[in-house]
Amino acid sequence: MNSMMIENFNFLINCDISNLSKNEKLSYYRRIKSKIDMVMNDKDIDLNFYQKLLILKKRVMSKILNVD
């Protein structure tokens, strides 16, 4: 279940969205980030899974940083 979720997030992050406008790109990555946040906010989350999600979140944050 957890690995499936990681794979899905990975797929979403790696999707080619170069044809979208700047605002659309931003909202796309922000939506992924908020979904990762939702999963991370679980009190009883396994810390190894949390760490993997955090790495994904870092990647999304970098993507947001580089949207021009």
């Binding site: 946040d37 939702m38 906010n41 989350i45």
Partner: peptide, 14 residues
Amino acid sequence: LQEISNEDGEIHAS
């Protein structure tokens, strides 16, 4: 802190 917080700036529960 941004990495370990959600959009509202709250630190994740764990």
